[in-house]
Each structure stands twice: as structure tokens, then as C-alpha cells.
Design a protein around this nucleic acid. Structure first.
Length: 475
DNA sequence: TGAAATGTTGGGGCG
DNA sequence: ACGCCCCAACATTTC
């Protein structure tokens, strides 16, 4: 018997042991060196933002525990680090889960080539998406550009997603004594402790992801379609950061929800997983999505630069309660309910008429679930510049949205306590409340809570006019 | 995964 | 009984 063959499993956005095909495959080699590399220089604009770094620290810490300390972490150039390890440990195969961020795609090609030159096997596995982007094509062979046919025909009529596999058993894990001494050495935690407000909202790591999912399945999924748009309720799964870091796979969710007792409520949750697939599909086929308008006519759009309004928007001080509540949820929890993302996004791009990249950058830094596909695809969707995007003239009115989706004001009251005593009928638009009502609620507009920083009606009208000019010029 | 403007319809009050 | 007006309520169009 020869010595067991040495493999590397390179963890990236797949920080789990169960349903990890790349890890399971690596485990068959006999000995596995599990590694993680923080490579900010290569990631560029997609180096994890501050909130993501916080999550990553805890997710890696959890994974480290699940591996009994065998995880070796590094910081720096992935290509050099992997090649050095391959030599030092006499590695015969390197396994990883396919990732779709453009910088990863480019780097993976580089690493794979260098490994093959050295005679090391490269083993890339699907593990982050239900359907590989290259496999979904229209009957005529072209790409989908619209969500509904992409999902209904392209995905649902394709072979069903891979079934989840269990955690590999009795793996011999190897660790590297020359790796960084601990996850702390990655320096992922913030120096001033804004993360303290995030912590109580999350249960980070593989087991935490499953606890969250089980709670969702037990209490919410069967009313998901009906209740998901009411942000004050615990009606959405909040699994997005767990999915982003790969603590749970979409396959685990899909087969638990879709296969068993299907109904409209569950089907809608699956559709949301479909939107995630669509975002990655778009990113895969349009790698410039994160920084370039998909519809070229938007290159001529007269965006405005307004650092003051941008700052108010970021801090949740615009004076529009529904917008501010969303932005404060983001700041306090690292997450924002989807409906609020649309409302706050529409406000920035249409009312303030600022380029969506400002919103994209802020979300990238503050969301624990920020990923290059959903973040850019969704901002282009909100702006109207994406494919299958909301038409530009679809401008959300934060007052009406508040009345519709936060009818008892519980969401606004939760994140804007200074307005909590206001009667519900004025909560979404305190500037219309009579002076006596404001006074008895202890609200002084401009002092305890800001006046609206811009006029919703006027800015809507001028945004529509700017849009029409853009269209006229592009003909 | 809009909102606002405009159009249509039908019931009720009233002369 | 009838025409007229008003105006919800709903539908359609436009941005």
C-alpha cells in the first residue's frame, strides 16, 4: 500500500461540509488539506465589503470548529499560495466549487492552467447553483433574457437539480503548520464595533443556516406567497447570506421545499431561488453587468451627483419614513427586506436620480448577503437598465408602498422610533400631519426627524422627463 | 415585483 | 317615468 494521496479542498463560497460535492470528491483521495484564501487584490471591486467580512469571519470560525481545527487560512495571491502548497504537500488533486464572480472565473482559469502544467489534477464541481448557466438555452439555441421564460421553460423543464449528498464521513483532514495562526489573523472584524448590532440577528454557520431554514419551513413557507411582502412580519427566509457563503446549498433548499407537498406558497419560494439563478445566469453571460449598463441607451442618461442626498440616504435620514426605515434596517442588521430594497433603490435612482453604482457600492459594503450577481442585476433591474428590468417609468411611491405593505406601521415604528407615537395614518408621510398631531406625538420635523430631503412628486416628474429625453436621443 | 391620469359604468339623488 | 348630474368603483392607458 502506498501512502494516501493528498488532495486540497479549496473552500471559497461553499463554507459547508454537507452537500459539498467538491469536498466529498476530495475526501476520496485519502487525505484532504482544507484551505481558505483571502485574496482582496485579485477580487478588486468584489473583495468582500465590511458586513460580508464580519460574516465571513464567523462563518470561517464555525467551519474551523466543524473541521476540528484542520482548516488552514491564508491571505494573498491565490495562484502563488495554491502552487506553493501543491509542492510542499505533494498534492495530486485540487478540488473546488465553481464560482461565477468574474474575477474568480479569470483566476480559476489561471490556477487550473498552472496546476495542469505541473501534472496536478484539477477538479471543479457545481455546488452553488441549481442549474449551470451554460445548460439553459432557448429551443433555438440562444440565451434567455427574460426571467419568466428562463425559469418556467428553461429551468423547470430542464433535468431536476442534483439531489443533496451527506457530509463525507471519516475524512482524514490535514492541516498546514505554516498557515496563518488563526482566523483572527485575516483581520476581518471591524475596529469600531458596529457589528455588535448585527450579531443578535444572525446564527452564522452551517448548522445555523439549517436552524433558520427549518424554522422557515415549519412556520412560514406555507404562507410565503401571501405574506412575503409585509416586511414587519417574519415571513421571508433570510437565508440569502447563508446561501451566499454556501453554508447551505440551493439544492438542499429546493429539494426540501419543492419535492414535498407542493403548493402555490412553496412554488413562490422556489421562484425566488429562480431569481437567484437568473442573476447568476445574467452575470455569467454578461460579465460586465456589475459596472456597465446592459441597455446601452442608459449611458446617455443624465444622472445627478448629489453627495448630500447620498449621505442622507445611506444614513436613513432622507425624511421619507419608508426609505429611511429600509436603510436603517440595513445598517442595524446587515440585511434589508426585498420590498424595501426596491423602494429605497427606486428613491435613489429615480427620485434622487443618482447612478445606481452609488447604491450598488453602498449595498456591497453593508449587506451581509451581497453577491456580485444579485447586487448588480437587481440594481440594474431597479434602474431599468437591465434586461427584463422594471421599466424606467415604474417609480415607487414610498408613501403608497408604506400604506400598502406596512399598513399598521409596525415596520416604520421598529426602525424609526422617533416617529413611533405618530398615528398610523401619518406614519408614511409625517410632513402632512397637522401641527397638533405632530406635537402630541413628540415629533418636531427638522429636529427630531428630518423634513423630506426632496419632493417626491416633483422629482418623479423630472425623472420621467429625463427618461423621455434619453429615449428620444437613442432613437 | 407601480403610479397617476383618463375612461367607463352604474346606482342614487333630484328636479 | 325620465334625464341629468355626481361620483364611487373599476378598467384602461400613459408615463
Amino acid at each position: 500500500m502506498s501512502a494516501p494521496k493528498q488532495a486540497i479542498h479549496w473552500f471559497r463560497q461553499d463554507l459547508r461540509l454537507a452537500d459539498n460535492p467538491a469536498l466529498s470528491q476530495a475526501a476520496k483521495h485519502g487525505s484532504v488539506l482544507p484551505i481558505y484564501i483571502l485574496d482582496d487584490a485579485a477580487a478588486g471591486m468584489h473583495a468582500p465589503g465590511a458586513a460580508s467580512r464580519w460574516w465571513l469571519h464567523h462563518s470561517l470560525t464555525d467551519l474551523q470548529q466543524r473541521l476540528n481545527g484542520a482548516l488552514s487560512v491564508y491571505m494573498g495571491d491565490s495562484v502563488a499560495i495554491v502552487l506553493e502548497l501543491v509542492t510542499r504537500f505533494n498534492v495530486t488533486a485540487v478540488h473546488w466549487t465553481r464560482d461565477y464572480a468574474p474575477w474568480r472565473v479569470a483566476q480559476d482559469a489561471q490556477v487550473a492552467e498552472a496546476l495542469r502544467e505541473r501534472g496536478v489534477a484539477v477538479s471543479v464541481h457545481s455546488g452553488s447553483l441549481l442549474w449551470e448557466p451554460d445548460t439553459i438555452v432557448k429551443p433555438d439555441g440562444t440565451r434567455y433574457g427574460v426571467f419568466t421564460p428562463f425559469y418556467q421553460r428553461g429551468c423547470l423543464e430542464a433535468p431536476a437539480p442534483r439531489r443533496p449528498i451527506p457530509e463525507p464521513q471519516s475524512v482524514r483532514y490535514q492541516s498546514d503548520s505554516l498557515a496563518l495562526p488563526s482566523i483572527n489573523a485575516l483581520n476581518l472584524l471591524p475596529h469600531n464595533r458596529w457589528d455588535l448590532s448585527l450579531a443578535p440577528h444572525w446564527d452564522i454557520g452551517e448548522l445555523g443556516a439549517h436552524r433558520r431554514f427549518n424554522l422557515f419551513v415549519d412556520t412560514q413557507v406555507d404562507q410565503y406567497k401571501d405574506r412575503r411582502d409585509f416586511p414587519a412580519e417574519p415571513s421571508v427566509s433570510r437565508l440569502s447570506p447563508h446561501l451566499h457563503f454556501g453554508e447551505v446549498s440551493p439544492n438542499q433548499l429546493w429539494h426540501a421545499v419543492y419535492a414535498s407537498s407542493m403548493n402555490k406558497q412553496r412554488a413562490h419560494f422556489c421562484t425566488e431561488l429562480g431569481w437567484r439563478e437568473f442573476a447568476y445566469y445574467m452575470l455569467h453571460h454578461h460579465p460586465t453587468l456589475p459596472h456597465t449598463h446592459l441597455q446601452a441607451k442608459f449611458n446617455a442618461f443624465p444622472w445627478q451627483e448629489d453627495p448630500v442626498v447620498l449621505d442622507l440616504w445611506q444614513r436613513g435620514e432622507t425624511g421619507i419614513p419608508m426609505v429611511d426605515a429600509g436603510m436603517r434596517e440595513l445598517w442595524q442588521t446587515g440585511y434589508m427586506h426585498n420590498r424595501l430594497r426596491m423602494i429605497a433603490g427606486s428613491f435613489l435612482v429615480k427620485n434622487a436620480r443618482m447612478h445606481w453604482r452609488h447604491g450598488e457600492r453602498w449595498f456591497w459594503d453593508t449587506l451581509v448577503d451581497a453577491n456580485p450577481a444579485n447586487n448588480s442585476a437587481s440594481w440594474q433591474w431597479v434602474a431599468g437598465s437591465g434586461s427584463d428590468a422594471a421599466p424606467y417609468f415604474r417609480v415607487f411611491n414610498p408613501v403608497l408602498q408604506g400604506q400598502k405593505f406596512d399598513p399598521d406601521g409596525a415596520y416604520i415604528r421598529r426602525y424609526i422610533p422617533e416617529l413611533a407615537a405618530l398615528p398610523t395614518e401619518y406614519l408614511a408621510h409625517p410632513w402632512t400631519a397637522p401641527a397638533s398631531v405632530l406635537a402630541s406625538a413628540g415629533v418636531q420635523l427638522g429636529i427630531t426627524y428630518p423634513e423630506p430631503c426632496l419632493d417626491l412628486e416633483k422629482t418623479r416628474a423630472s425623472a420621467l422627463a429625463a427618461f423621455q429625453r434619453m429615449n428620444a436621443e437613442s432613437v
